[in-house]
């Protein structure tokens, strides 16, 4: 029973890994094809590209997966914590893009840590929302006043 369970688990893992690889390879850019100009080879750029792909709405998971696989295969891994990249790859395999983003950001050495590092604060989007503060309501009142004054000018 236990042997069957292990075999099933291995098979599932194998299928998942295969699917992940196929998905990842399908996300490889055209420049990976022979005869086409090569893309970046360093893991730092590739990880940043993967991040960029995941931070759009909806996240471009297949593109990000391709970039993460390329990063894992990269020879130049300066400035990148490759263990975190592996964790990001596992998260992507489970279609968990939020965790993958967190792992990829953690994989990049912050700018203060070493020269050539990445300012991690700039890798996160700024998404302001309606504040609902007295100032914002005062501004809305100002907007209503402008519309009213405009209407009065047109009517006169």
């Amino acid at each position: 029973m236990r042997a069957t369970w292990d075999r099933t688990r291995k098979l599932t893992t194998g299928v998942a890994a295969g699917a992940f690889l196929i998905l990842g390879l399908s996300g490889l850019p055209a420049d990976a094809q022979p005869g086409v100009v090569a893309g970046p080879k360093d893991a730092l750029t590739l990880v940043r590209q993967a991040l960029a792909a995941l931070e759009v709405a909806p996240p471009a998971v297949s593109v990000a997966t391709g970039k993460v696989i390329q990063a894992l295969l990269a020879k130049d891994t300066a400035g990148v914590d490759m263990v975190r990249v592996q964790e990001a790859a596992q998260a992507l395999g489970q279609q968990d893009s939020a965790t993958a983003v967190a792992r990829l950001i953690a994989a990049l050495h912050p700018v203060r840590a070493r020269p050539g590092g990445v300012d991690v604060a700039l890798l996160m989007p700024v998404e302001p929302r309606f504040a609902g503060t007295p100032t914002s309501y005062a501004l809305l009142a100002g907007a209503a006043l402008l519309v009213t004054v405009g209407g009065l000018i047109i009517r006169r």
């Binding site: 850019p29 991040l51 914002s136």
Partner: peptide
Amino acid sequence: VIFPPGQGPAPVSGIEV
């Protein structure tokens, strides 16, 4: 005020998403 425009992460070239 209601829909303040945001700002995306610092860009990286070589990708179109």
